[in-house]
Write a protein that binds this DNA or RNA. Sequence first.
DNA 1: ATCTTATATCGCAAATATACGATAAGAAAA
DNA 2: TTTTCTTATCGTATATTTGCGATATAAGAT
Lengths: 111, 111
Amino acid sequence: MATHKKEAFTQKEQDLAAFAKALAHPARIAILKVLAQRNECICGEIVEILPLAQSTVSQHLKELKNAGLINGSVDGPRSCYCINWKAFEKFNQEFSWLFTNLKIKNEKSCC
Amino acid sequence: MATHKKEAFTQKEQDLAAFAKALAHPARIAILKVLAQRNECICGEIVEILPLAQSTVSQHLKELKNAGLINGSVDGPRSCYCINWKAFEKFNQEFSWLFTNLKIKNEKSCC
DNA sequence: ATCTTATATCGCAAATATACGATAAGAAAA
DNA sequence: TTTTCTTATCGTATATTTGCGATATAAGAT
């Protein structure tokens, strides 16, 4: 009946989930890897590397950009993308926040 | 026409994406947070904490377990869950692998 | 002005994910 | 045994994601 009760959770929980969601597809991981390797802004080279149609890649780029994981700017007839490192730093912080109360205290699983 | 072309990507990319996918919902983040705070195996207390139906929580727990993020064992009439820390360690490794070639070299974004 | 090239967006089809109530399954309690 | 309690699973409705071709858009080249 209903779907998505996101509003019932804290902002931090939503933020972290949104970040993870952006990473939750191998194509987007692959895109980030390419961008990380080159650092320099890249565009449709990604289309040639990935086994996906141009429109699909464009869509994944859009999602990554909406999530704030990458920056994009128009460079003449082509688009230029690169990783937003600050966003990843923030993610790491949020991620470690998840486990603040423990992780060091007890590394052992109980079951 | 087609959906999900996962098999076209590397195993590492798929693994990382699968892990992220498990985290890609605020309810599952919330569950992990509860488990991290208590460490001790917990079960239906989670149901009381989360603003979701029991069946929905059970479904999320199943996903987390399938992804390997948590362990679960039956304890009499109730189920006991706890975080699989090793899985998170592995994830951290995979995650940093993503950016091996850079991150240190150049923290600045180009666009 | 027209053509080419590079990207983004639209529209659609198929697959997944999310959520819930109802029901099953299993153990303990009566 | 029957009841109760806890959790998992099934069935179902709806929303979202994924993917592609076709088309729009925008800048440079001819």
